[in-house]
Simulated assay, not measured.
Amino acid sequence: MSQNNAIYKGFKVSAKVRQAPDAFPGGDVVHPRFLATVTITQVSTGMGSQRLLPPEIQQFADAPHAAITLALTSAREAIDGMSTFVKAK
């Protein structure tokens, strides 16, 4: 198992990769594939606001580094898609 951690815009993005099952339920054998799972944790609360974080993000690829790259890219896109607007009082 491999793990990759990064801080992106005040969020900790942690990716873990493992080898995925190598057969479909019907019994067809496929090339070895890897599953990367990413979790997002808020490390900076900025002006005290907590953000609703997306659930775990998963991506499959034929190589471990490719799976991590896809998963981290998906996590960054999810963070970029969160509203960062803070209404002034």
Rank of each mutant, 00 (worst) to 15 (best):
Q59K: 15
G26Q: 13
R76D: 05
P55V: 13
Q58S: 14
Q42W: 10
V38A: 10
T84F: 14
P32F: 05
L52I: 14
G27A: 07
S44H: 11
M82K: 01
R51T: 11
I68A: 04
T39S: 15
V17W: 05
G46I: 08
R33P: 00
I40M: 06
H31K: 10
K12T: 02
N5D: 15
A67S: 10
V43W: 11
T84P: 00
A88H: 15
V29Q: 12
I79C: 09
I68N: 01
V43Q: 14
V13I: 15
M82N: 01
K9D: 11
A67E: 03
N5L: 12
F85L: 15
A15N: 06
A63I: 00
K16A: 06
K16Q: 06
E77A: 13
I79S: 01
S44T: 06
P21D: 14
N4P: 00
G48I: 09
T39M: 11
Q59A: 14
L72V: 11
I68V: 11
S2D: 10
L53I: 07
Q3S: 10
K89C: 04
Q19A: 08
R76V: 05
K87I: 09
F85Y: 15
A88G: 11
V13S: 03
D80T: 02
I57T: 03
K9I: 03
F11P: 00
T41I: 08
T41V: 14
I7V: 15
K87L: 11
Q42H: 09
A78T: 05
A71S: 12
R18W: 02
L52Q: 12
A36G: 01
P54A: 11
T73V: 08
A67T: 05
Q19M: 13
F24Q: 11
H31D: 11
L70C: 03
L52R: 07
T84D: 10
F24T: 13
E77P: 00
A61Q: 02
A63F: 06
A78Y: 05
S14I: 13
E77T: 05
F60R: 03
S74R: 06
I79D: 07
V43G: 02
L35H: 09
L35D: 09
